[in-house]
Design a binder for these strands. Structure first.
Length: 221
DNA sequence: ACGAGGATGCTCT
DNA sequence: GAGCATCCTCGTG
């Protein structure tokens, strides 16, 4: 079903829209990366695409901070310690919180992160897995090889494909965007959160900076 | 200018 | 469970 363009336009950025009312603003992301990573479990990732609203519940995240070597921002460590501005791809991690950081992994997969911490402090949360809540047919069309709907977003590269999140979202302002933003959970019950070491990294693999919803079928392997 | 090494997923055995 | 696809970033020369 399609709604009239005017009605759709009014619904956007309207406080009566429950997703908009639950939107997470800059203040949410302007905190310690570990707190944001933990509290994003259960939150919703919202993607408005060609008039349709795709919604997915975040069930797995990882924290990355400039002062540990698994973080892309680590390459700027010496510059930042010397009081010089960060450069290159990871400079964005040291910028305003609430900005999307999207980069290509292994030449194939786009990975979606949210920048955290005060400006000048490099940090981001990688969203590793989501459970689809709305728009499943479109997500399936974007990942036609996947048969199990619970696994449409069960990996960092999978969820970006299912939600059509690509390189044009790098630097995107999630606190003010209609196309892509985060919203607080609709479920008042707190999720059962577990934590452990991050996946697929070589350095700093001892840090338990991965958070996930316990026993959830959409968590990555 | 160049090469090594990834915050992975898919397709086979 | 192994191999591959595929390309950007960064460090080195």
């Amino acid at each position: 079903m399609r709604r009239a363009g005017t009605a759709r336009g009014r619904a956007r950025r309207d406080a009566s829209d429950p997703l908009e009312a639950a939107r997470l603003g800059r203040a949410f992301f302007e905190r310690s990366t570990l707190a944001v990573a933990r509290e994003l479990i259960g939150a919703r990732l919202v993607r408005r695409l060609r008039g349709e609203t795709l919604v997915a519940r975040i069930v797995e995240t990882e924290a990355y901070r400039w002062d540990e070597p698994a973080c892309h921002g680590f390459v700027n460590r010496e510059r930042v310690l010397a009081g010089r501005p960060p450069v290159g791809r990871s400079a964005l991690l040291f910028g305003a919180p609430g900005i999307a950081y999207v980069y290509l992994s292994y030449g194939v997969h786009w990975l979606f992160n949210v920048v955290t911490e005060d400006e000048g402090v490099g940090g981001a949360v990688l969203v590793r897995a989501v459970e689809p809540l709305a728009g499943l047919a479109t997500m399936h069309a974007l990942r036609p090889a996947e048969r199990d709907p619970r696994r449409l977003g069960s990996g960092p590269g999978r969820l970006t494909r299912a939600l059509d999140i690509g390189p044009r979202f790098n630097g995107h302002p999630l606190a003010s965007s209609d196309e892509l933003f985060l919203a607080a959970s609709a479920d008042p019950r707190p999720p059962r959160i577990a934590r452990g070491p991050r996946i697929g990294i070589r350095r700093a693999s001892e840090l338990p900076w991965r958070f996930f919803e316990r026993d959830h079928p959409s968590v990555s392997r």
